[in-house]
Amino acid sequence: MSNEKINAKNITEDEYFYGHKACAGCGGSVAVRLALKVLGKRTFSVLPAGCMSAVGFIYPQMAFSTNAMIAPFPATGAMISGVAAGAKALGIKDFHAVGIAGDGGTADIGFQALSGAIDRGDNIIYICYDNEAYMNTGIQKSGLTPYGTKTTTSPAGENLPGSIRQKKNMFEIVAAHDIDYAATCSIGYPNDFLNKLKKAKKIKGTSYIHVYASCPTGWGSPTNTSIDLAKKAVDCGLWYLAEYENGEFKLNKNPKKFISVKDYLLNQGRFKHLKEEDINVIIKNRDKKWEKIRKNWL
């Protein structure tokens, strides 16, 4: 593999996730499509119950042209580890084993199996596409749903602003395992995402890629703003692009000035109810987080 950065000009024309039934503007399907373009033909993918498996494996219409299978919901980390172990034991060479799960499948029900896989140092890549709720079952709160989000199980009303907890900090939790490589990405910054995947391909050990992926259906946003919203999330500081490698954190993008949080939030149905005071809570938490990031990761 060359050292050349992957970009829109040199990325393969081959499609490995095609003909699926995802909603218009689905960020998760963009993440899967791009990821497989980087990982290539010799890839085994395991996806748990969730949007991408629901839209990609409806017999007899299979949307993956690489090897792929659905895992039990809690089992992505374990099943992809088994694939890697089995392939290794059979002497299969030059392949990638990738687990691709949503935020609930990663941070909640699949958390234990992911932790086990990282602990073993299995030679796998784990991608979490994070759309901040259980979208496949109809927009319920997950461990990665941020403060102030209206979901069907965290309704916003007179007493509550929607979800009252911060996102679980998966990136640093994963890093705390002393994982070989971890990175945060956004489909709004595709070059960054593609090249982090390229890096993960070369890692001998476990890689974790956490990609922010918008969901028009769950977020109440126009389908043609998905990429833009995922970019804005980074630009307003509610998401960040970083890496963990060789025991060190590294911030990849340090915005001099954040764009408006309010503008990012209020263009989405899930946040439309937020009052000024709720938005101030979100900004305060963002600033606290960035103070730590800038102090420790630069």
């Binding site: 089992a75 088994g82 890697a84 392939a87 034991a89 199996a113 086990g116």
Partner: peptide, 26 residues
């Protein structure tokens, strides 16, 4: 053989399925 230290029985069975899915004996 590969010996996998899994973190639960759920994962033991899931890993075994991963193994079998590539045609290996679990």
């Amino acid at each position: 053989a590969e010996f996998m230290h899994v973190e639960s029985e759920h994962s033991a069975m899931s890993a075994a399925m991963g193994v079998s899915s590539v045609g290996a004996r679990a």
